[in-house]
Amino acid sequence: MRIVLHIWRQANAAAAGRMVRYELPNVNTHMSFLEMLDILNEDLIGRGEDPVAFDHDCREGICGMCGCMVNGVAHGPLPGTTLCQLHMRHFKDGDELYLEPWRARAFPVVKDLVVDRSAFDRLIAAGGFISVATGSAPDGNAILVPKENADRSMDAAACIGCGACVAMCPNASASLFMGAKLAHLGLLPQGQPERDRRVMAMEAQANRELFGSCTNIGECEAVCPKDIKLEVIARMNRDFLHANWIGRGGLKGD
């Protein structure tokens, strides 16, 4: 089938970008979306043109490296699916697709569809962990975790850090990402001692990274390839309010 692509081309972080039109006359419906881009790139190299830079790695929907906006939707039209798992059979002959990088002040474009998501790493470095040095752990079964909590923690921990939530959010907010980490750790007994400190530190870091804030719209939830729910944001808000007004952990001492 024939697919027309309009792709954001930007030589580097400092350069101005623009949409460029490419036509692919022969796209196999069983191809994945990234395989289609591979074909385009092979073709571009053949013609001596600079191939389109895009991030990708595992191509099985778990590493979180790939992703771009497809017709204004992060990771494309199929819910619960990363771009690498999206296959061309979901498109029609003659479709025109607009591919743009994630856009947010906190995610500067590096080249074409590649953006710098190191802000996410800094959010985790600020507090998204449990401080346990190697070797100091008690037996695994010494810490009991109710199954429901373990399951809900896992739901949140499924986040792959792809950035689709930020990209899709009209406010470029990282709340879903942060909320997922806070819920993952906050639902487990191991995560309690640092719960207050964690939310305060991550919240402060998010502001330094110039992410927007949550206005409870829910576009993040709608495009999240791992179906992380908005509830994690409510949880974060609750944790923040608790830590700010009542909590002591992380507010005094050390």
Partner: peptide
């Protein structure tokens, strides 16, 4: 043990 303590949701 180490992974449980780190918060791996086994």
């Amino acid at each position: 043990d180490q992974c449980v303590a780190q918060g791996v949701p086994f």
